[in-house]
Each structure stands twice: as structure tokens, then as C-alpha cells.
């Protein structure tokens, strides 16, 4: 392995370690929320410091790589993608912390009926599953899997869009649960953001592997891209006057 390969591989290892930690945070956030587990919630919040350290460390590694190795092409895309994935992981960790802080305010688990009608648990499970699959896609350099994640985010958005109406309706009938309802609504909003952040990460995996920019594409274009998938060359407008 040459120097830059060693550095890039160290960078990937560091990012995976952070990923594991954030995944643990998010999973534990879910468990703490469902079981009103104060102890676990405290642990999740405490881990935030460790995640922040990873965040700083990975940024610094990217900075060094750019300064000392001037990476180009696929190497450059890896460094750029890592910078963004790092930022998104850190935000997902923050979300897990935020949820755990809500849990610390509560002494009993959420009302099962409210969880049921909002589909909050299904949403949490899907966010976790997406996050987990995203990690697999990153590790396996699998852009098909990454593309699939872009579509899965829609389910989270749907649950989120309906949630305020459902919760408002429930609270009208059960005014005693207002505080609980507001907290759940906040958690649902946070989970919707997790879906977006996983999507961002998936987009970076595609950028790194295929040199394609898929973010900010309209739905129509998304479909077109889906069709011409697989002839993975350049990012569209590289018609210099190559004659070779």
C-alpha cells in the first residue's frame, strides 16, 4: 500500500468506529424511550462527548489528507464525502442525545395508544434500519443499496406529515397528555431529520463511488437517473473534446 492508501484506510476505519458508536446511541435512544430507561438515556447523552471527539478527529484527518497528499479523483471524492458523512453522523448522534434528554424528563413510558396511532415506533425502527443499511452500503461500496435508501426516506416523511394532525386529535380527547404529546411530536420531527441525514449520507456514497451528484434532483430526474443506472461514467457534462 502506498502512503495515501494507508491514510485513506485509517480515515475509513475511524469513520466506521464513529458510525458504530452513533448507531449504538440511536438504538439505545429508542430502547430508553420505549422503556423510560433513565439510566440508558443518561449513557446515550454521555456518549455525545465521545462522538464529538470523533467528529473533530475525522475533520482533522481530512484536513491533513488534503494538505499533505493533495488527493484527486476517487481519493478526493472519498475525502469530501467523508467530511460530509462525518457531519451527518454527528447530527444523528445529537438526535439520539436529544431524544434521550426527553426521556430523562419522563418517568413512565409513552402511552401505547399514542405510539400506535402515530406509528412512532415503526418510524424509529425504519430510521434505525435505514441507518444500519446505509452503513452496510458504505462498507460494501454498494451504490444500489445507497440509491434504495433515497426512496425509503419517503415512509418517514409520510409518518411525519401526518403526525401533528393525529396528535392534535388525540390531545383534544386526552388533554391530560399534552406534555407527552408535544414530546412525542418533537421526537417524530427528530426522526424525520434522521431520515434526511441518512439520505445525505447515501448521496455521498453515490458521489464517492460513481462521481455522480444526486442531491437536489427533482423527482422526475430521479426516475430518469434510476433508469440509466449502471453505465457509471463521469458526472454528465464531461464532453471536453476527447477523441481518444
Amino acid at each position: 500500500m502506498n502512503h495515501i492508501d494507508v491514510e485513506l484506510s485509517n480515515l475509513k476505519v475511524k469513520l466506521m468506529e464513529m458510525w458504530d458508536l452513533v448507531e449504538y446511541q440511536l438504538q439505545s435512544g429508542r430502547d430508553a424511550m420505549l422503556n423510560a430507561d433513565q439510566e440508558l438515556a443518561r449513557k446515550v447523552v454521555k456518549l455525545g462527548k465521545k462522538v464529538n471527539n470523533f467528529d473533530v478527529k475525522i475533520d482533522r484527518m481530512c484536513e491533513n489528507l488534503l494538505a499533505l497528499y493533495t488527493p484527486v479523483a476517487v481519493d478526493l471524492r472519498l475525502v469530501l464525502a467523508t467530511l460530509k458523512i462525518n457531519a451527518n453522523l454527528e447530527r444523528i448522534g445529537d438526535t439520539a442525545e436529544g431524544i434521550s434528554m426527553f426521556v430523562q424528563k419522563r418517568e413512565v413510558p409513552f402511552n401505547p395508544e399514542m405510539l400506535e396511532i402515530t406509528r412512532a415506533v415503526a418510524m424509529f425502527d425504519e430510521a434505525l434500519a435505514m441507518f444500519h443499511d446505509c452503513r452496510i452500503a458504505y462498507k460494501a461500496n454498494n451504490t444500489d443499496q445507497a440509491r434504495a435508501l433515497l426512496r425509503r426516506d419517503k415512509m418517514l416523511n409520510k409518518i411525519y406529515r401526518k403526525s401533528d394532525r393525529i396528535i392534535a386529535q388525540y390531545l383534544r380527547a386526552n388533554p391530560d397528555s399534552i406534555e407527552e404529546g408535544l414530546i412525542l411530536l418533537s421526537i417524530i420531527k427528530k426522526l424525520e431529520r434522521v431520515g434526511d441525514q441518512v439520505t445525505n449520507i447515501a448521496e455521498e456514497i453515490i458521489f464517492y463511488q460513481d462521481a455522480k451528484v444526486v442531491k437536489h434532483k427533482s423527482k422526475k430526474k430521479d426516475k430518469e437517473n434510476g433508469k440509466e443506472n449502471g453505465n457509471g461514467n463521469g458526472n454528465g457534462n464531461n464532453n471536453g473534446n476527447a477523441i481518444s
Partner: peptide, 23 residues
């Protein structure tokens, strides 16, 4: 390979080009 420089150094088409420019 012959292309605009910014294409060559961000997303070269040929593997041999990529191997060369990335050392």
C-alpha cells in the same frame, strides 16, 4: 484519455488514468 482538466482530476473515465493521477 483527453478531456477537460477538471474532469480528468475529478472523474476520469479510464481506470489507467485514475491509477496514474492518484499515484
Amino acid at each position: 484519455e483527453f478531456a477537460k482538466t477538471r474532469t480528468m482530476f475529478t472523474s476520469p473515465k479510464h481506470e489507467r488514468t485514475q491509477n496514474y493521477i492518484t499515484g
